[in-house]
Write a protein that binds this DNA or RNA. Structure first.
Length: 135
DNA sequence: GCCAACGTTGGC
DNA sequence: GCCAACGTTGGC
């Protein structure tokens, strides 16, 4: 089972809204690398939910419930979405600053490729986020 | 609000 | 196919 990180601006779509919705499709991806990652997501995979801009921290987890299918908000049929449902809110959110300070997480795509919105995490990185989140 | 990083577009 | 111009993202 793979681990992913999804970015969202809290003013556009927050984790609170996601919890209220119960499920959502992850739309609006218009970047080839992000699309490649979306297509690689499998049902049952875990995704960490990161608030960009104002918040700049990982605030919760989600599970992939449906693999990539055409983005309903896209007329060109070129882009895809996945369905996800919330798992839980983190006890302690993990900030971008913590990522940069951490010997494992500083190598993650979140730090190295700040503009990528859908990115993979390796097992060590996912484990480390979980550790920090429950501390 | 500014700016760096980076992706896309279009002229040649 | 190259590269300058431009637009967008996201951290600070």
């Amino acid at each position: 089972m793979a681990n992913w990180l999804l970015k969202s601006e809290p003013t556009v779509y927050s984790f609170d809204q996601f919890l209220a919705d119960g499920t959502t499709y992850w739309d609006g991806v218009r970047n080839y690398q992000a699309r490649k990652n979306l297509r690689a997501m499998k049902k049952g995979d875990t995704a960490f939910f990161y608030h960009s801009n104002e918040d700049r921290q990982v605030v919760g987890t989600a599970e992939v419930t449906r693999e990539a299918y055409p983005d309903p908000t896209d007329d060109t049929d070129e882009w895809v979405v996945v369905d996800i449902k919330p798992l839980k809110r983190l006890v302690s959110p993990v900030s971008l600053h913590q990522f940069k300070m951490d010997s494992v997480l500083k190598h993650s795509a979140l730090v190295r490729q700040s503009r990528l919105s859908v990115m993979p995490l390796d097992p060590a990185q996912a484990k480390r986020i979980t550790e920090l989140a429950s501390a």
